[in-house]
Design a protein around this nucleic acid. Sequence first.
DNA 1: CTCCTCCTTGGAACCGGTTTCAGACCGGAT
DNA 2: ATCCGGTCTGAAACCGGTTCCAAGGAGGAG
Lengths: 340, 340
Amino acid sequence: MEPVSGSARIADVAARAGVGVATVSRVLNGHASVRPATRERVLDAIRALNYRPSSVARNLSLQRTMVVGAVLPWFTNPSAVQRVRGIVEGLSSSPYDLMVFDVESEDRQRRAFELFDRGDRADGLLVVSTLPPEAEVERIRNAGLPCILVDGIHPSLPCIAVDDVGGGEMATRHLIELGHRRIAHIGDTPPEFRFDWSRDRTRGYERALERAGIDVRPDYVREGTRLLHVARGIATELLTLPDRPTAIFAASDTQAFGTLEAARALGIRVPEELSVIGFDDIEVASYVALTTVRQPLFESGRRGAELLLRALAGRPVEVRTELLPLELIVRRTTGPSPAA
Amino acid sequence: MEPVSGSARIADVAARAGVGVATVSRVLNGHASVRPATRERVLDAIRALNYRPSSVARNLSLQRTMVVGAVLPWFTNPSAVQRVRGIVEGLSSSPYDLMVFDVESEDRQRRAFELFDRGDRADGLLVVSTLPPEAEVERIRNAGLPCILVDGIHPSLPCIAVDDVGGGEMATRHLIELGHRRIAHIGDTPPEFRFDWSRDRTRGYERALERAGIDVRPDYVREGTRLLHVARGIATELLTLPDRPTAIFAASDTQAFGTLEAARALGIRVPEELSVIGFDDIEVASYVALTTVRQPLFESGRRGAELLLRALAGRPVEVRTELLPLELIVRRTTGPSPAA
DNA sequence: CTCCTCCTTGGAACCGGTTTCAGACCGGAT
DNA sequence: ATCCGGTCTGAAACCGGTTCCAAGGAGGAG
């Protein structure tokens, strides 16, 4: 009479041990005092039936899942992987498990939030590199679902972000200090559902130029989606301008790679004839020796997880934007201006 | 009287619409016939209360979650990310959502399986680049949980894998054809919980040498964990041998990168003085122009998802190992033997 | 007008756990 | 012997849905 098909239920265990279900539950959760002899009988029954409690039933009863959800765009954002690793790390010593949900389109984003916003799939939510619609923020608050925004800013959620204006300025100043005067910029047109940090980086670029007394040339400022080949196209346009730039600041590493490819195709040497700087410092950047502004990707995830855990523990989390430090990483794609 | 705190339940909707819960459920699921006027009343109540059904309660009742789980090692295996992308792609047009669980240690692996093996967290399971313990395979079968193994082989599960012996042979033959005779090999010592494909690649290496009439030199065959710096150490040993190899076949791209770093540190030029070939063709490989044996990472995930969906649809899935094709990708880290 | 369908609907059982609450049982004190 | 307190224990309510089943009501046929 072995329980071959399907899984045993708590009632089966109770029956076999000759006790009530409440007692089995108590043994399972180590709750109240159960007489040692009884406990042993129950444990024997559990072993004999190869029993494991249903987590779904448990969740329903406890109103708790011990899962935290993360919604983020995988594909459109290679840096997201690094952030997830930080989240995993931040969660690793906690009893919470992680459920990752990929949003690569607006439609998927809606589905992701529908999945989580009622608060019964996960006990907490990390929203990474994507901007929750206003209605969802509302719903999440109503559900009492703790939520942290990573790589994005929203006035009514705790956020982890970086100073994009400062970062854009940092990148551009580096080029200026190398003697460059003709500095172009490739910005990132974010999809609808993503936070638009690119605008701020562009503002930082403009500010650095102004402070150095260099005019902002509209024909040097372009914008396109983050895709590598799109950036390559834009860079090609810039580099075939009659008065071509000697340096290009790309709003992301991916776009910087596109720029490098364009330069290679045109036979323009980097960094001798052209300096290129990116933003993010994704893993690949060190392999191709790209100069870039490093933002702490891993750390952003870790910190987000940390704040979420604090909220889950019932301790208060301030609703404010926490800025992580940026760092200029000089490698081999930037050098002195050839014009200098 | 707005429902400010907590979420509305189906009973609230029923009460407000003046109908029974069964009717609300029918409207929600578009099941049996509901009179249009009644349906409208229910829909109004749903809107007014901002109601969304609890997925947990739904799961419990339906014994179905519409989620598929994936357990895989993130950190120890950069190629895993690529496989996940394939899985996401394969699932994208299905009604199933994906829950990713990271296993970077044996302990985490146990937890992952405990989470899924009862079959109530997810309707199906994809096990990627990690080998489920025998007891778990048993339990998964008992729970009737469809399960596909990706990048691993187990006699009682449908598997997606590659011909590692053939791949090792392919890589080594490429080096032989370039005139190399002193060919070393760096194998991968897998952690306990991972499938040991490295042994097969080593066997392929040996077979290729034998077929070419080249003796297998024990001092040319080393093994270490997959970590980059470990491989760098091993490569350094190999390259400081009195009779140093002119070519090295690394069992993974990560280890090939370690080898390249070792060569650079020793001032040995690649490919003029040393040829290096890897295995996997992870994304970075194309950036550093690494010659490698490509295994279809993305495709393995996509195909695994496809098989799982078939199983979930109730159609039979053969318990057999499906081998995906390998391809030699020649880039710029291999060249003619300097000895030739 | 009556009877019989068919359509629509609500009550209640069920999914598998947790927890409240009250009662059974035990030993020790009076 | 009786009473009291504390320890263990099980029945039942509950979490929030789905669905079986029986019943009410409307409309058509006889």
